[in-house]
């Protein structure tokens, strides 16, 4: 078996395992789906209460696509925490699998899971609000989802080292990162309302560009060719963040092996 085939098989192991876990925790999956739909509806209804169709769409898109990005981030960032909780972290890290194969499998599943989850939320909201998406440019939407996923995979991999290094507080730190991204990325409001220092952070958050690009694609039907200003930062972030995340993860794994932090469970 070639090295590539072996690594792909290993990557598939993580996809299949995560699918089985989703299936076994189906009750929680339903609960999270209901929570996501309820949250998106609650936020979007603010737009309806204001009588502004544009505000409604801004909020719907913010809620739905933040849901997607945060799912991708959570799935990857919590990979270590999840295994630590199950007690399988040592077993997985002892297997003859290169880390990129493991993270590739986790990332592929995270994107597929996120897309399905988001499609359900989008479907419910579209029916609830009778959204008119006839002007939407779906090529733009898909492009930004793809590029945004790459950046969030990179951030997720880098964030996954926190539970590796900080056994008890790592998961909390991941949650804080996610919260900061939500706050500064203009998910529900333009970033211009933020204080100046927050706007600086907003410009290095990939979510800022994804949400803006998707909004313009859906509401105004803007083609990709006119959104270069949003695309190039995402491409750049994807190119930088994924290798940086992998490098960080490798360093953290060495640290955990030196200090004995792989062992702890729970």
């Amino acid at each position: 078996m070639t090295l590539m085939a072996r690594e792909l098989k290993a990557s598939y192991a993580f996809v299949e395992r995560n699918f089985h876990l989703t299936k076994r925790y189906w009750g929680w999956e339903v609960a999270w789906l209901v929570y996501s739909v309820a949250g998106a509806l609650a936020i979007s209804l603010i737009g309806r209460s204001e009588g502004s169709n544009r505000l409604l769409l801004v909020l719907v898109i913010g809620a739905i696509f933040w849901n997607f990005l945060s799912l991708v981030f959570e799935f990857i960032a919590e990979t270590v925490q999840w295994e630590r909780w199950e007690g399988t972290l040592e077993y997985t890290l002892m297997a003859p699998v290169r880390r990129y194969a493991q993270l590739l499998g986790s990332a592929v599943y995270a994107i597929v899971y996120g897309l399905i989850h988001t499609a359900v939320v989008l479907g419910v909201l579209a029916l609830f609000f009778q959204l008119d998406l006839s002007h939407a440019n779906f090529a733009t939407v898909l492009t930004f989802i793809g590029l945004g996923s790459m950046s969030f995979i990179g951030i997720g991999i880098a964030a996954a080292v926190l539970p590796l290094m900080y056994v008890e507080r790592g998961a909390q730190m991941v949650f804080v990162i996610q919260s900061v991204l939500l706050l500064v990325s203009g998910v529900y409001y333009p970033i211009t309302v933020l204080p100046g220092w927050m706007q600086v952070i907003a410009h290095v958050s990939p979510a800022t560009y994804v949400i803006d690009g998707v909004r313009r694609g859906v509401i105004e039907g803007t083609p990709i060719s006119q959104l270069v200003g949003d695309i190039w930062p995402l491409v750049l972030m994807g190119i930088i963040l994924i290798p940086l995340g992998m490098w960080t993860f490798g360093r953290a794994e060495r640290y955990a092996k030196r200090t004995g932090k792989l062992k702890r469970v729970g």
């Binding site: 299949e16 089985h20 876990l21 925790y25 007690g87 399988t88 077993y91 297997a95």
Partner: peptide, 22 residues
């Protein structure tokens, strides 16, 4: 401590392990 995904079946855990080892 038997390190498994406890919600998964033995079959699912073993197939996961098998794939990891090619």
């Amino acid at each position: 401590d038997a390190a498994f995904f406890k919600k998964l079946s033995p079959h699912e855990n073993l197939i996961y392990a098998a794939r990891l080892y090619g």
